[in-house]
Design a protein around this nucleic acid. Structure first.
Length: 409
RNA sequence: CGGGGCGUCGUAUACUGGCAGUACGCAUGGUUUGGGACCAUGUAGACUGGGUUCGAUUCCCAGCGCCCCGACCA
């Protein structure tokens, strides 16, 4: 991608905001705030979000089938479970009188999809032979937070992967629950944050009277406080931590959660299956979330320095920031163009800074945007290129072919 | 949802009851070119509604919006 043709504009003078992720993502032109807690993902930001979501997708595909449910649903489904009183729920209706005459319906902008997926499953999975099964989606969710804050970490509209599993027994549900934990671990390993992520015991909240588990990334600007038992290493959400005990407290951000719903939603929708003996039995369910846009914020919180973001290679928007210095020199431009062509041909995602601006401006954009490698072509590189890692102060001078070979390793 | 603050060019910020200024950006021309260069010229702004006043961007009221602290966070 050529910078000159890309819808990208960095702004080093953007205001410092309440959190590192909000500040750096806005300075780097990854996101733009549309209203409180609601953001546009600009092209370079969408590349990162898509990469995060594709990693989540690949891991979830090993345990469930992807589908896509609607963002809008009829209020009746929510009345069935009695969850219309959740105070973060957005309600929608026709915007003018004419449409109200046409349809006086009320709708919910879904904050989660138990109310959609349970009747859906009931329509076509009615025999014990159909169980167990699991479906998931990656979708935009709405939650009317009374106070949105910290950039992508607490929005009113956000991206989430939500997975639902269906079982004929509690034992089978709990076995799947453990499988889901492993899939989650694989996601967070690939994002480079597993070491700092704790599986944390928490209350089931509105979903269940029992327990649930949260995946909490230890993170200074996190909203939650978790307590880690100094003896056993077990982690608890502060709300359920035993009063006595030897705990270390950490701020953390909830990047995933898993709930054994048991029969709460199947009972509400009267979802039963026929067993071998021809009898109707209640279905057991679990639900499992990962906040993908929040993860993007958490990654910035964890991986940055004073110059900008340092994206993990697995989610970086581009692999290479190619900077041609003094690019109004025809010879330099030709060499930089050629390098861009070679990199692209080799399948290496490259952001080619072909703007005629001062070298320092290019370097600081490369650092701010957090692209893992920088390649410089200039008078000094003398027909070769200079390769530098974002995290290293040193650079190496080499020909473009060995440079590409090294990047492809 | 309680408490507080703020709405000024695209962005960041000043000043002001009487022609609204600066920097960045953007545009044009020229000079530059290895860590956000320089000169010149230009571009562009008072959230909305009401009130007070000869006159309101400034003071008052309401609405809307944004931010911060706390509460909340399926």
């Amino acid at each position: 991608m050529k910078y000159s043709q890309y819808f990208l504009h960095t702004n080093k003078d953007a205001k410092e905001l309440d959190s590192i992720n909000a500040t750096l993502l806005q300075k780097g032109g990854f996101i733009d705030q549309t209203m409180s807690g609601v953001y546009t993902f600009l092209p370079i930001g969408l590349r990162v979000l898509n990469k995060i979501e594709n990693i989540v997708r690949e891991e979830m595909d090993t345990i469930a089938s992807e589908l896509l449910m609607p963002a809008l649903s009829p209020v009746e489904l929510w009345e069935t479970t009695g969850r219309t009183d959740i105070d973060v729920l957005f309600e929608a209706r026709g915007a003018n009188d004419a449409s109200r005459k046409r349809n006086d319906g009320r709708y919910i902008l879904n904050s989660t999809h138990e109310e959609i997926v349970t009747p859906l499953a009931k329509k076509r999975r009615l025999s014990y032979k159909d169980f167990p099964f699991a479906v998931y989606q990656i979708q935009t969710k709405f939650r009317n937070e009374e106070r949105a804050k910290s950039g992508l970490m607490r929005g009113r509209e956000f991206r989430m992967k939500d997975l639902y599993s269906f079982h004929t027994s509690e034992e089978d549900l709990l076995a799947f629950y453990e499988t889901a934990k492993i899939a989650y671990m694989n996601v967070f390993k690939r994002l480079g944050i597993w070491e700092d992520t704790k599986i944390t015991k928490a209350s089931g909240g509105d979903f269940t009277t029992g327990f649930s588990h949260e995946f909490q990334a230890i993170c200074e600007s996190g909203e939650d406080v978790i307590c880690i038992d100094n003896k056993t290493g077990e982690a608890f959400n502060k709300e359920v931590a035993p009063k006595d005990g030897d705990f270390t407290q950490h701020n953390a951000s909830e990047i995933g959660n898993i709930f054994p719903l048991n029969t709460k939603f199947s009972k509400a929708f009267d979802y039963t299956y026929t067993n071998k003996e021809g009898k109707q039995q209640i279905v057991y369910m679990g639900s499992y979330g990962i906040g993908t846009s929040r993860l993007m914020g958490v990654l910035v919180e964890k991986f940055h320095d004073e110059k900008g973001i340092i994206w993990p290679k697995s989610v970086a928007p581009f692999t290479i920031y190619l900077a041609g210095l003094n690019i109004d020199d025809e010879e330099i431009k030709q060499q930089a163009d050629a390098a861009y062509e070679e990199l692209t041909k080799a399948g290496i995602e490259t952001l080619y800074d072909d703007r005629n601006i001062a070298p320092g401006a290019k370097f600081s954009d490369a650092d701010l945007l957090g692209i893992p490698y920088r390649i410089v072509v200039s008078k000094k590189t003398n027909r070769q290129v200079e390769l530098k890692e974002r995290t290293s102060p040193e650079s190496t001078l080499l020909d473009i072919a060995p440079c590409i070979a090294r990047l492809k390793q």
